[in-house]
Design a protein around this nucleic acid. Structure first.
Lengths: 214, 214
DNA sequence: AAATTAATTAATCATATGATTAAAACATAA
DNA sequence: TTATGTTTTAATCATATGATTAATTAATTT
């Protein structure tokens, strides 16, 4: 049984421990600031096992990155594609689904934005169903927004602004949270989470105001 | 003449070249992903000069970081403190000033958010006028928002939401720009800049809608 | 049980990387 | 010009870090 085969086997405790530790550290600190020795220590395993199971730091990172990209974009796609709904329902669902996701994975956005900036983001891979789906979803959602803009009183507004505002209103609090939750920020972790849940209702209202739907 | 003294001397061409290169690379790639050799190469100087002028990578980073923090927060403070204006004017000014700043320094926000997350952000230093001013400004601006919320029809809205939305609407496009400007994003650099200038007018309107001032 | 394969470990390697040194080049002053 | 201080360079150091190896232990198969 060769190593390649082994890597494909699931629920191998050691392998999962390594990947879990890697995910935690890579997601929080990024690629360069994470030492393989830190991952090994976090996972409670011998350093050599990291290379035994994953060959290299780079390969391990790519696996973690891909999982994070899937987590981040997969949430959108899953419902966008399958359940066509009226725009307002779609908006509610999207915001709710996303805020839940980020409450569970608060480090995710900064990780994604960093790999986007660094150029590490997986290239357009025609074989990868996710990356194709992101494209698909983009077009679909954009069309919905354009329709909504037609109905609203902000016909001249570039859809870019709507998409950016929607993403920003959802995501930004999470990447700015270290600021808000610092001593000087006066917001506790619990309070922050409460406010994020409030935003599930508020953001769709604000976006409708941007589109001037109501 | 000792090294410490030398470091305080200004407009030494070599020193400036190093700091400039360091600023560029640290701001774009962060601390860990930046090699001192890359800085030396970028500056076109011998590696040893980096340590000769700045002692260590860490010290050089701290200087760059402090300058970036000043650039990022200084823009706010300068006007906030000195020119009390009606909230709406203040809003216009702040948004305009900030978007101009970020058009000139598009890597700044991600840099700041990363050092906030990493805990490298300069600690509350009672001697540092900037850090004291940030606090001052926070209180001042927050009070303005609370007053505006009283006047508007969104009295129950937590000021957190207003501050977060304002920051997010301004800053988020810049950290998400690699996504928008990727092949799949369909937005060119020129178009992006045009849209950011549009936002100078739009964001204050959106914020007023959030507060339900109009 | 014996043989075979897989997983784990301690030790070590090779290179990258931040930092230092000693000497050379350059500038300035006497 | 010589002397003195400053800046720059090439070479080198010390450690960090990713990776490998050879041996050991554990598990699985025959």
């Amino acid at each position: 049984m060769n190593k390649t085969k082994k890597i494909e086997d699931k629920d191998l405790s050691t392998e999962e421990k390594i990947k879990g530790a890697a995910k935690k550290l890579f997601t929080h600190n990024g690629y360069s600031a994470t030492r393989t020795r830190d991952i090994a220590k976090e996972a409670g395993i011998n350093l050599a096992l990291l290379n035994y199971y994953f060959r290299s730091k780079k390969k391990l990172f790519e696996i973690v990155m891909k999982e994070n990209v899937y987590l981040f974009f997969g949430a959108l796609i899953e419902n966008m594609n399958n359940n066509p709904r009226p725009f307002e329902k779609q908006l509610d669902f999207l915001v709710g689904r996303y805020i839940d996701l980020l409450l569970e994975n608060p480090d995710l956005p900064l990780f994604i934005l960093n790999i986007l900036q660094s150029g590490k983001f997986p290239q357009e891979d025609k074989d990868d169903p996710l990356l194709r789906n992101i494209q698909h979803m983009r077009g679909y959602f954009l069309k919905n927004i354009q329709d909504a803009l037609e109905k609203g009183k902000a016909k001249n507004l570039h859809p870019f602004h709507v998409v950016t505002n929607l993403m920003g209103l959802i995501i930004f609090p999470f990447i700015a949270s270290p600021m808000m939750m610092a001593r000087s920020g006066n917001i506790s972790r619990k309070e922050f989470e409460r406010l994020m849940i409030e935003r599930k209702e508020l953001i769709p209202e604000w976006i409708k105001a941007v589109i001037k739907l109501k």
